[in-house]
């Protein structure tokens, strides 16, 4: 339970710092980059290095490559749908999480061979 609380606080802090940076920067198109900031990754990898060691964290980082490719596909799909169909952003961004999941898991399976 104690570890979960530490994870929650550190994860929340990293995400908040990158969110504040995104809010501070102009133009808006540049601030959009911070929607894909490595906030959760930094928090998790720091905690993993501390608890399980750097080699274990490196395995997580390798899998993160697939997650990041899936993020790219997800954000591109959200962008196209919002641009062409003008649906509410929260519905599109929420529904398309399934695209991230499918791409990430698909890549994991392919990577494993």
């Amino acid at each position: 339970m104690g570890e979960a609380i530490v994870r929650f606080i550190i994860g929340g802090m990293f995400v908040s710092v990158f969110a504040i940076l995104g809010d501070l920067l102009k133009p808006k198109s540049f601030a959009g980059l911070f929607g894909a900031a490595p906030s959760v990754a930094l928090a998790t990898l720091l905690l993993t290095v501390h608890r399980q060691g750097a080699s274990y964290a490196a395995i997580e980082a390798r899998s993160m490559i697939e997650g990041a490719i899936a993020f790219c596909a997800y954000a591109y799909c959200v962008c196209c749908v919002l641009m062409h169909y003008k649906r509410p952003a929260w519905i599109v961004a929420g529904l398309f999480i399934s695209v991230w999941l499918a791409t990430a898991i698909g890549l994991r399976i392919v990577w494993l061979g």
Binding site: G32, L33, G35, S55, A58, A61, I65
Partner: peptide, 30 residues
């Protein structure tokens, strides 16, 4: 919604950077 789409385009570019982050961490962390 157009502004939201622009933000999503930014995130798509940022996620390419995220691949770079993961590669550096994977290769050097250990």
């Amino acid at each position: 919604r157009e502004a939201a789409a622009l933000d999503a385009a930014g995130a798509a570019i940022g996620s390419i950077g995220l691949i770079g982050f993961a590669v550096v961490a994977w290769l050097l962390l250990a």
